[in-house]
Design a binder for these strands. Structure first.
Length: 470
RNA sequence: GGUGCCAUCGUCUAGCCUGGUCCAGGACAUCGCCCUUUCACGGCGGUAACGCGGGUUCGAAUCCCGCUGGCACUACCA
């Protein structure tokens, strides 16, 4: 049974980079019929933001990456005794030791070493001291792991292959901090073991500390899981993706009008690609196609233009009913925007190819509305006001005489195009379109008429005629 | 500084393992044309890449070495 996990630190909302990591862990588990678990790594009490736990879970659910332990998420801060017990075991069998070096001393050491252009290392003062817990006051010691002085360790990464690390380069990593909380290294190893995680799928920044984790597994005499280190998501300038590059949170993208399906599809393609040229994938198609072998090694820039395009594709191809549903949800705090259901449905029918994001609905709506405009806008290129007036009146007469009440684009075209072909398309259609929209850029006249209906069409044309006659 | 990872169009990538079918394919963006009353949609087409230098080989984007560059790690942060 394959088990993967996503283990974010609750220091803010779910980041798109984190979502990508979660997605790959989710896809790998689902593809193999395994489990995908969520664990909250809240061992850093200084950066801890309580609300972010709920936000992360909500974001995961919005994306459709529902963990199998959604109702029983593992929270590290509730498991302190387990980590202490594990650390004590290491203490007892000589794989760890108590260290009383003060933070100040360590910082000073490190600064001096850096100034001397030497690698900053823990000097190992306490390594052979063999201090006992009874010898030291609470809150004044840490527990460090005893990393062997020599030798090497090979990490067999599913994406990068075999990587050999020289153990002499590793510091004696702190396992339990002076506040009694475990560090990432201890907690993640203990939990991955307890949760029976078989594949540790995480961001590449963890690759350099994987040997420490493997050492820990060996010290505990536990089975070592498989590792897969995912390439980073980068900002356009190839630096680490951060706030200063714009939106980074999953919910920020939601609020910008992106669909979860499009966001998922987009981040899946950031570091993974099938062997053919397909680019549109639903979550279930991704589950079917995904494999770690086809994950890219190099970092990928988060390029929002492609996300925009993908989102537009999803909007174009989903059913009107689904799109309407997405909009209802999107505007749940501003329901007035979409309160008239028939109107909204009709609008989507006529104009949805103009939408790329859900926020474009407002623009779309506005493009069928009319506002005050300058009458000269009605005149086509080199044409004259008189000619325009005559043509508008001709069009008005024609439309008035139509017996049809429900304007359809096809019927309207059949009725008006002959006139336009005779008198000149620009001469007929431009004034008509401006009369209907009041804008220099807008949907076509037939689109607008079919949307607003006969009565409103005639009213707007009459308005234009009066403008010209005044 | 040290260690490690990575390196194909501006961007995401296919191809690399199993060298020849690659004067490198697709997509986004961009440009042009068509459609068209405008804008968008749509259709068609163009520009654009194997980081550099050495090998190995009849032949290298593909294998090897070096260099350069980018990134990560080097915390009582994860």
């Amino acid at each position: 049974m394959i088990v993967t996990r996503f283990a974010p630190s609750p220091t803010g909302e779910l980041h798109v980079g984190g979502a990508r990591t979660a997605l790959f862990a989710f896809l790998f588990a689902r593809h193999n019929g395994g489990k995908f678990l969520l664990r909250i790594e809240d061992t850093d009490r200084e950066r801890y933001i309580p609300e972010s736990v709920g936000h992360i879970i909500a974001a995961l659910n919005w994306l459709g990456l529902v963990p199998d332990n959604n109702d029983k998420v593992v929270i590290q801060s509730e498991r302190l005794e387990i980590y202490k017990k594990a650390a004590n075991e290491l203490l007892n069998n000589g794989h760890a030791y108590i260290c009383v070096c003060s933070k100040e001393k360590l910082t000073a050491d490190r600064e001096r070493q850096i100034a001397e252009k030497k690698p900053p290392r823990y000097k190992g003062h306490c390594r052979e001291l063999n201090l006992k817990k009874n010898d030291v006051a609470d809150e004044e010691f840490v527990i460090r792991m005893k990393v062997p002085k020599g030798g090497s360790i090979a990490v067999n990464d599913l994406i990068h292959g075999e990587i050999i690390f020289d153990l002499s380069l590793f510091d004696d990593q702190i396992l339990i901090k002076s506040d009694g909380y475990p560090t990432y290294h201890l907690a993640s190893v203990v939990d991955d073991h307890e949760m029976s995680v078989t594949h540790v799928i995480r961001a590449e920044e963890w690759l350099p500390s994987t040997p420490k984790h493997m050492l820990l597994y060996k010290m505990f005499d536990w089975n070592i899981p498989a590792f897969a280190h995912l390439p980073m998501n980068l900002a356009p300038d190839r630096s680490k993706l951060s706030k200063r590059h714009g939106a980074t949170g999953v919910f920020e993208y939601k609020n910008l009008g992106y669909l979860p399906e499009a966001l998922i599809n987009f981040i899946a393609l950031l570091g993974w690609h099938p062997s053919d040229d397909r680019e549109i994938f639903s979550l279930s198609e991704l589950i079917k196609e995904f494999s770690l072998e086809r994950v890219q090694k190099s970092g990928a820039i988060f390029n929002i233009q492609k996300l925009d395009w993908l989102n537009g594709e999803y909007i174009k191809n989903m059913s009107t009913k689904d799109l309407y549903g997405a909009l209802i949800d999107f505007y749940k705090n501003k329901p007035e925007i979409i309160s008239d259901k028939n109107n909204a449905l009709k609008l989507l029918e006529v104009g949805r190819s103009r939408m790329q994001k859900l926020t474009d609905f407002q623009t779309l709506k506005d493009s069928f509305d009319i506002h005050e405009y300058d009458k000269n806008l009605l005149i086509w290129k080199e044409s004259s006001a008189e000619k325009t007036l005559t043509n508008l009146k001709l069009t008005q007469e024609l439309l008035r005489s139509l017996l049809i009440n429900e304007f359809s684009q096809k019927e309207l075209e059949a009725e008006i195009m002959p006139l336009a072909n005779t008198n000149g398309r620009g001469e007929i259609l431009w004034p008509l379109r401006v009369a209907l929209s009041g804008k220099n850029k807008s949907p076509g006249p037939f689109e607008i008429m079919s949307f607003i209906g006969k009565e409103e069409t005639l009213r707007r044309i009459e308005m234009a005629i009066q403008k010209l006659e005044s």
